[in-house]
């Protein structure tokens, strides 16, 4: 075989480098598309919806006339559903994460729970809606209420919170536990006074990401049969006649932001497109700011913790 001359070798190298450069360009191009989609989305909704960004839009109920319709019942509903979701999902998720990291023995039961959690994360969200329709709405008789919706979304984001809790706990070195137990603390006292507080930032990040996911979920809430036209507010939480009146609000019918957007998007009248754009922009601001807080928290944590 003829040995390559210097020129040929240079040509081979140049060709290889050219391919590298081309691929770099393609990679950046793909990233640019992703960025472009986000920017186009936000810009489009902002420009189309800009005429609706008035106080009226936020304090009006849905209406048959597009220009008078507002998102009051939608954002109040979203807030209340998130409250139920957080109250159910955070204690359950943190407790489950704590159990799996600090208490669970390596046996079949633990294995079943772990496999289960990772499989649940891949179940389509609409299937949770069917679960809720069968169990919460009809078996438990909660009806199409804030309670049903909140619990459904809580089950949906439980895997996210559990995984975040476990990762945060796993990052705490063993010496913390040994130190605590060496001075006579029980396992629960160690968890209560050391593990949970130190894992808090990580848990919080998971909770925010989970809630940001939940606030944008539409399919499971439509499936349980939430109404799309609600022109009243649920009772203000915790203000009714105690004890029964305190929880009136959880049984109230409701609507949420994504359902309101869906409703407006699926109307043929283009005037409602403007409403959909404006409401979509508001929802995006909510979700993106929650995500931004979570990303920032994670970034801070990575910088600050030195055991």
């Amino acid at each position: 075989m003829q040995p390559l001359t210097n020129e040929q070798i240079r040509a081979v190298i140049a060709r290889g480098k050219l391919k590298d450069t081309i691929f770099k360009g393609v990679g950046l191009f793909c990233l640019a598309i992703a960025l472009l989609v986000i920017v186009a989305l936000i810009a489009d909704m902002f420009m189309k919806g800009s005429e609706r960004f008035t106080l009226d839009f936020f304090i009006n109920f849905a209406s048959r006339r597009a220009t008078q319709a507002g998102i009051l019942s939608a954002w109040v509903g979203s807030l209340l559903v998130m409250l139920v979701t957080a109250l159910a999902a955070v204690p359950l998720g943190v407790a489950a994460g704590l159990y799996l990291e600090e208490y669970a023995k390596r046996n079949w039961l633990t294995h079943v729970i772990e496999v289960n959690i990772s499989n649940l994360a891949a179940v389509p969200s609409i299937v949770y809606g069917l679960l809720a329709l069968g169990i919460f709405v009809y078996q438990f008789g909660f009806g199409q209420s804030i309670l049903s919706a909140g619990l459904t979304l809580a089950l949906l984001i439980l895997p996210i919170i559990i995984v975040a809790t476990r990762e945060a706990i796993r990052a705490i070195p063993a010496m913390i536990r040994e130190g605590s137990m060496a001075v006579g603390a029980t396992r629960w006292q160690t968890c209560r006074y050391h593990i949970i507080p130190y894992a808090m930032p990580g848990i919080l990040t998971g909770v925010i990401i989970g809630l940001a996911r939940a606030i944008g979920e539409t399919a499971p809430i439509i499936t349980i049969g939430a109404l799309t036209f609600i022109a009243f507010l649920p009772p203000v939480p915790f203000t009714g006649e105690p004890p029964a009146g305190l929880f009136d609000w959880v049984m109230s019918p409701f609507t949420v932001m994504p359902i309101q957007i869906f409703n407006w998007t699926s109307r043929p009248d283009p005037a409602f497109e403007v409403n959909a754009a404006a409401a979509g922009f508001v929802l995006m601001v909510m979700v993106l700011s929650m995500n931004a807080v979570a990303i920032y928290l994670r970034y801070k944590m990575r910088k600050n913790i030195k055991w």
Binding site: I38, E217, G280
Partner: peptide, 22 residues
């Protein structure tokens, strides 16, 4: 990475709006 994360966090109803009207 944060850009991709934000893209993954956009509610699907908003993507639906985007698909239909843009």
């Amino acid at each position: 990475k944060p850009i991709l994360e934000l893209l993954g966090g956009i509610p699907t109803i908003v993507f639906g709006y985007f698909a239909l009207l843009v």
